[in-house]
Simulated scan of single mutants.
Amino acid sequence: MIKVVVSGALGKMGLESCKAVANADGLLLVGAVDHQGIGDCIGPLIGRPDVDVTLSGNLEEVLLYQKPDVLIDFTRPGAVQGNIELALKHGVRPVVGTTGMSTQEIEHFTALAQSKKIGGLIAPNFAIGALLMMKFAAEAAKYFPNVEIIELHHDQKVDAPSGTALKTAEIITSVRGNRPQGMPSEFEKIQGVRGGNYEGMRIHSVRLPGLVAHQEVILGDIGQTLTIRHDSISRESFMPGLIMAVRKVVNLEHLVYGLENLLFQN
């Protein structure tokens, strides 16, 4: 039985995570951490009144008392870094969906996990369809190297562009390199209207109520375009990938960035 604690348990992704863990075979929800609802029972909130787990505001206390195998973190930039440090300090494998960390921070945690021989995962996206979208986009970029990315999320998301968009751009860049696109003489009449420039390709971020998580990769060549799109209609779409990650990290001795490195491994 894999014992799991969820940090950020009362957030939208946190509640879905608690529910998914409670309903998964071979997994046991032993802790739920959030800065709200302290002392409440998480069970009724996820439709499982039989789950007797009390919300705590102190992650380290929960890790020490429950001794979980895995920490799932869906908190926010600025908080997630300390949570990962605590998890690794106490020999707990982090599975992190919180985005907004810098490359340097990810490299730091990768090295720390390696030194402790503790498995873990930091993933911009847990939707398997989104991972396939990135894989297909990278393959298409071999033949269509002119690319723009449009990512669309709910208006409560604090970081832009999304971690998925950045990961997609990184993967495409590994195929096509730094390639300037468009007219060298183009100019913006409204600053930022052409989006962010990543190695020559443009990334555009949309934030609106009613959205969950969506992304288009548009590739163009003479006389034709190719659009690869993924839509997460509900947060349930992230749960199969999340549960797969929890099961796989217990057998790792290093930290992995990107769920595709577990999904597409030989």
Rank of each mutant, 00 (worst) to 15 (best):
V80L: 07
L263Q: 11
E188K: 12
K189Q: 07
L71P: 02
G43N: 11
G223I: 10
T227D: 01
P184C: 06
V217D: 02
I46A: 09
K117R: 15
L15W: 03
A138R: 10
E253I: 06
D69Q: 08
H230L: 00
L64T: 10
L132G: 01
V147A: 11
V217W: 05
V30R: 08
G78L: 13
V212E: 06
D221M: 15
E170V: 07
S205F: 03
R207D: 00
G14P: 01
R229D: 00
G120P: 00
K117W: 01
L27G: 05
T168C: 12
I218F: 03
Q66S: 15
S56H: 11
L211C: 10
L242D: 02
S232R: 04
V246H: 07
D69M: 10
P49V: 12
A9C: 13
E107M: 15
V6Y: 08
I46R: 11
D52W: 04
K189V: 12
H230V: 06
D231R: 07
V33N: 05
T99V: 14
A113E: 05
N197E: 07
R93D: 00
Q265W: 07
K117I: 01
Q36E: 14
S174D: 07
L208R: 15
G47V: 13
T225Y: 09
V175G: 01
G220R: 15
S237A: 12
I171T: 04
A22M: 02
G39C: 08
H108Y: 15
P240A: 10
A24F: 04
R207V: 01
P49W: 15
V249A: 10
T173I: 00
G192Y: 06
I118Y: 00
Y198W: 14
T103L: 15
K116W: 02
M13K: 04
R176S: 03
G129H: 01
D40E: 13
E188C: 11
F187M: 13
N23V: 01
V193L: 11
T103G: 12
D40P: 00
I172C: 03
G14T: 05
G57V: 12
A213S: 13
G220T: 14
F74S: 13
I233T: 07
L166I: 14
L132V: 11
K248W: 04
F187W: 12
P44R: 14
V193C: 13
R48K: 14
K116Q: 09
G129Y: 01
T173G: 00
F109L: 12
H108G: 05
I2T: 10
F264G: 03
L242K: 08
V217M: 09
V212D: 01
S232P: 00
V217C: 06
I84Y: 06
P145E: 04
P124R: 07
T168E: 01
Q215P: 00
A123F: 00
I38L: 08
D69E: 09
Q191Y: 12
E148C: 08
R194A: 13
Q265Y: 09
E216P: 00
I218K: 14
G26Q: 03
